[in-house]
């Protein structure tokens, strides 16, 4: 008789388990509407100078404030939810995944399943957030915009896992609420920071992906492909960190 595939089983059952996390589902329904739709509804339609990157140089273009808000509020929403999903996943994994190792799961099988679940949740979150955004605003280059948003959201999901390994649930919730807000909504927002951000603002996970989103959301040419690469590199770095803390966290049951 053929034994059941461990990674596929842990992945499938993990998806079901998180689909039953009603807090996560509620956030997925409520947050995009309240963050994105309301942001469009209450933002005054005036032209604002926006910093972006054109032909290799930082420049300023005039765009409507609702459009800029769309470019910023959508990744804040998806990063926030993905970060919480990562946090929940790690908090639960710390308690119980150690037992999976005892029954025979290899660390790589559980890690693949858990990270796969996070990737699927992030895909759904990005899809819902972009879908809500598209009601009010269409980015100039949709798929590049979505790619950058996915990279940023997965990065925040992995940061959520890291935070979940180090802090308790309440502290983790506060961190994952505040971090995307100050990173994407303040340091990377071209309305707040009109010139090139300070060096330390560039260390935040939002720097490279938001550059791509501002560029591809508000202009017709892609001038920030390199930034997408850097954003992906940042994701890989955080991913390795998350794997390390996950492994250590589940050993200390």
């Amino acid at each position: 008789m053929v034994s059941v595939n461990r990674t596929a089983t842990a992945f499938g059952i993990g998806l079901r388990e998180h689909a039953r996390n009603y807090v996560l589902v509620a956030l997925l329904v409520i947050l995009p509407v309240s963050f994105i739709t309301l942001a469009f509804a209450v933002t005054q339609d005036v032209q604002m100078p926006v910093r972006t990157f054109v032909d290799g140089e930082t420049t300023t273009v005039m765009r409507g404030m609702p459009e800029v808000h769309g470019v910023i509020m959508t990744p804040i929403t998806s990063s926030f939810i993905a970060g919480l999903a990562g946090l929940f996943l790690m908090r639960e994994a710390r308690d119980t995944d150690g037992r999976l190792a005892v029954v025979g799961y290899r660390a790589r099988q559980v890690i693949a399943a858990r990270f796969g679940v996070l990737a699927v949740i992030t895909l759904v979150v990005v899809g819902v957030s972009v879908g809500v955004m598209l009601i009010d605003f269409q980015p100039e280059q949709l798929w590049w915009f979505v790619a950058a948003m996915f990279v940023l959201s997965v990065t925040y999901g992995l940061i959520g896992m890291f935070v979940g390994a180090v802090f308790n649930r309440l502290a983790g919730l506060w961190i994952m609420l505040i971090l995307p807000m100050i990173d994407i909504g303040l340091f990377q927002d071209p309305l707040f920071v009109q010139s090139e951000p300070e060096w330390w603002m560039k260390l935040f996970p939002g720097y490279h992906p938001v550059r791509v989103m501002v560029d591809t959301g508000l202009t017709t040419d892609l001038d920030t492909a390199m930034s997408l690469g850097w954003g992906f590199g940042y994701l890989l770095f955080v991913g390795l960190l998350a794997i390390w803390v996950y492994y250590r966290g589940t050993r200390a049951t």
Binding site: M1, S3, V4, R6, A10, H18, T96
Partner: peptide, 25 residues
């Protein structure tokens, strides 16, 4: 040490896969 949102049957399936058991087992 169980997953709260899984059913009892799903719990058996998850851990049974870890033990290397077949679906029938």
């Amino acid at each position: 040490l169980l997953y709260d949102r899984l059913t009892v049957s799903e719990t058996f399936r998850l851990f049974g896969a870890g033990y290397g058991m077949s679906r029938e087992e």
